[in-house]
Amino acid sequence: MNKRRVTALGSATLDMIEALGRAGMFLFQASVGLPTRSGFHLWLRQMHFIGVMSLAIVLVSGLFIGMVLGLQGYTILVDFGAEDALGQMVALSLLRELAPVVAALLFAGRAGSALTAEIGLMKATEQLTSMEMIGVDPLRRVVAPRLWAGFVSLPLLTIGFSVVGIWGGYLVGVEWLGVFEGSYWSNMQGSVDFIEDIGNGLVKSLVFALVVTWIAVFQGYDLIPTSEGISRATTRTVVYSSLAVLGLDFVLTTLMFGEL
């Protein structure tokens, strides 16, 4: 009985390592290769599908989160008579943590799952195989543009999230609760460092972009081509990428802001 359990554990570990290896080779094969003119058009189309189409949900979420931060921050800071520091609090929490993480989670739900389902459907309807038979590598033609589009889109979405969130904090803090406008901005400018805060936030979102898109396209490419397989893979995309984003966020935060 025990022996069987050990065997099962061992084979599960081997399977996991093998899947990781497949995913790594997949990423390598899809991302190498020179950009071409037709590749640019495919990329553009995916930028529209992945980036522009996710814009609305990301911006609306950013606005609400900024407004909530403004409200919560005010009620806490006002007890210390430090409501002037509201701008600093809103900006730092958005730039360092909330914008990269929440935008990545929304991105995984909105664009990641759609990518998995789309590629999975192409696999199920033999479009990928037929592409291979025509002599076109689907990794180049289907996967690479999506990978690059995701990699570029998410940082842009994250910037949008921060900007709208800071504006949302301003709306609630300054316009509604009456924090002095000058101190909202000057306190923010005094404490936010371009490289340290904005730069590190962007580095985070680049890492998340790579991981989420990679998981999404790999799950689509590697799934079992049935309707059940597609729905499972879509779920896996959202679950794995959310966990990866949150876990990596901790690691990156430790590396970037740990010694402060």
Binding site: T125, E126, Q127, T129, M131, M133
Partner: peptide, 17 residues
């Protein structure tokens, strides 16, 4: 290169949607 000399008709057609 060899596959360029082959054509394949798939069960589902497999047209690019």
């Amino acid at each position: 290169r060899l596959r360029r000399r082959m054509g394949m008709l798939f069960q589902s057609g497999a047209l690019f949607s």
